[in-house]
């Protein structure tokens, strides 16, 4: 199996951008001014990206006293506690929403991946019957769409209003993702596949035992794309589940109770019964923000290492 894997990665994935660990002899020596300008701008970019996340996390971990002393958001840790997380996780609205979000993300990603991988492999074999026609059928949808209202009418016509499947099925297939997977599967070494076929493997077996193991990186990245799409979806909730607050996923709870403040209709204090106060404590609000980040931050490091192996390049070239 390891042999298969190395052969596959050698031929099927694009080369990573070359690592230039050292200065070439013809390159100029860096000037102090140039290096410091570069360092400053890159440091600035990193700060702009990271400082907001830092503030959110620190505030969510701060004691009410620390939040008071800071007059709001806490930049420098002053007194840390998990109180906000405890309060948040005992709140029924947040607990349900977390479960709903996880459920939709897991179920949706599983469905999307099965459908997309099958379709991508089914279209990736050269000269198979009808694959050009089906490919055209797929690509047309990237340029022509019915748009918001007709899609809404179809989904509600099928009884999707108020149903969780309305958040999953209409967006389950991303033609773009299928095309990316397909371009990788098409590059899987023909010798490997022919060898497997000689050994009597059918297409299902080839997909499972040859193609999938040799394209783990692209599979992981596409799964991340799908999962992020489901985890982040909020507009479909607004369309199909606007009033069923017990079915809301986390993003919609975040929007309603944090972004729009606690004054939203829908009995905020009954739903978000935190400490019976009019507004939710800031640290708890930030804990909700952090909660929507946590799953991504858990998964991201495992997937982002594949970003370097040329998957994104393939993805963008599509």
């Amino acid at each position: 199996m390891t042999k298969v894997f190395t052969i596959g990665t050698g031929t099927s994935t694009a080369r990573a951008p070359r690592a230039r660990a050292e200065r070439r002899p013809w390159q100029e020596r860096p000037t102090l001014a140039g290096q410091s300008a570069k360092g400053l701008s890159l440091g600035g970019v990193l700060a702009v990206m990271l400082v907001p996340l830092w503030i959110v996390v620190v505030t969510s971990l701060s004691t009410p006293g620390a939040v008071n002393r800071a007059g709001g958001l806490v930049v420098w840790p002053d007194g840390l506690t998990l109180q906000a997380y405890r309060e948040m996780l005992t709140d029924p609205t947040v607990r349900t929403a977390l479960m709903v979000s996880l459920g939709i993300t897991v179920a949706g990603t599983a469905l999307s991946m099965v459908v997309s991988v099958l379709c991508a492999y089914g279209l990736s074999r050269p000269r198979s019957l009808g694959h050009r026609l089906i490919l055209v059928l797929l690509i047309v949808t990237m340029f022509v769409s019915g748009g918001l209202i007709p899609t809404f009418l179809v989904v509600t016509g099928l009884g999707g209003y108020g149903q969780w499947w309305a958040l999953i099925l209409p967006s389950a297939v991303s033609v773009f993702n299928i095309l990316v997977l397909r371009s990788f599967y098409a590059k899987t070494s023909a010798e490997l596949i022919d060898a497997a076929r000689m050994d009597g493997a059918g297409d299902w077996r080839i997909l499972w035992s040859v193609v999938l193991p040799t394209s783990r990186a692209v599979t992981a990245v596409i799964a991340l794309f799908y999962a992020v799409g489901y985890w982040n979806s909020f507009f479909t909730v607004m369309l199909y589940l606007p009033t069923d607050s017990e079915k809301w996923p986390l993003q919609y709870v975040l929007l309603t109770y944090v972004n729009r403040g606690a004054g939203m209709p829908g009995s905020v204090n009954a739903g978000f019964g935190l400490a019976h106060t009019q507004t939710t404590p800031l640290s708890t609000q930030m804990a909700v923000v952090a909660l929507t980040l946590v799953p991504l931050l858990i998964v991201y490091p495992f997937v982002q290492k594949h970003f370097r192996t040329g998957v994104l390049t393939g993805a963008v070239k599509g």
Binding site: S116, L118, G122
Partner: peptide
């Protein structure tokens, strides 16, 4: 045949 069957779910959804 198998290749065509594999494509069916995505095509139906689309």
């Amino acid at each position: 045949r198998s290749l065509l069957i594999m494509v069916v779910p995505a095509v139906v959804l689309l």
